[in-house]
């Protein structure tokens, strides 16, 4: 089935509202129906229309990684895709990382091991890039290409941390990649 909408005219004199669509998004396991124009990015849909502000806007141009979410398990920049293009996909944000990604560290905690490791190793300061870092790290582990610390550094380079927590981010991720019974 082709989904087609009316084309608004591109003219400075008679601008028209873009048509809105009913968009069904599956976010953190639950389906939500939103009325969105095509120009709404997945990031803005999450933040402004669903109030899931855990996903951050750091540049809105795919240059910082703060908006990283998992779509069907793969990490992407949510600022560079349209919400309407993500229908039928499974979107995981920081708010749903525990349910979608294998549960909490222990019965007493409601944190994912990666979240716990970020706290433990002080892998953040201001916290703004953190949800993106965590989603990205989990996505990286799914990909399975990071073996060494240098691999982690390279494959986490799509997430800028202006506070400069990089060494702690690498340590935190490695502690989850290679858990040692006495470190976590």
């Amino acid at each position: 089935m082709n989904l087609t909408t009316e084309a608004p005219l591109i003219s400075k004199k008679t601008p028209l509202l873009p048509a809105t669509h009913s968009v069904r998004l599956t976010v953190n396991g639950s389906e939500r129906e939103l009325q969105l124009a095509p120009w709404t990015s997945l990031l803005d849909a999450l933040r402004e229309y669903m109030h899931l502000t855990g996903t951050k806007k750091g540049c809105d141009h795919g240059q910082c990684g703060a908006c990283t979410v998992l779509v069907d398990g793969k990490r992407i920049n949510s600022c560079l895709t349209l919400a309407i293009m993500q229908e039928g996909k499974s979107i995981t944000t920081i708010e749903g990382i525990v349910q979608s990604e294998g549960g909490a560290t222990s019965e007493r905690s409601d944190l994912h091991p990666m979240q716990q490791a970020f706290i433990e190793h002080d892998a953040f300061q201001c916290g703004y890039c953190t949800p993106g870092q965590i989603c990205s790290a989990i996505g990286m582990m799914h990909e399975g290409h990071a073996k060494t610390a240098d691999d982690v550094r390279e494959l986490m380079s799509g997430n800028i941390c202006r506070c400069g927590a990089y060494p702690n981010i690498v340590t935190a991720i490695q502690s989850v990649m290679h858990p040692q019974p006495d470190t976590l």
Binding site: L52, T53, G54, K56, E95, L111, Q116, I119, D122, G127
Partner: peptide, 21 residues
């Protein structure tokens, strides 16, 4: 000590200026 605000930051619950509904 680990940060007392760590939990809010790693869960996305920490709210920044543009995030208040």
């Amino acid at each position: 000590l680990s940060r007392v605000d760590g939990y809010d930051k790693v869960t996305g619950k920490a709210k920044y200026a543009a995030e208040f509904d």
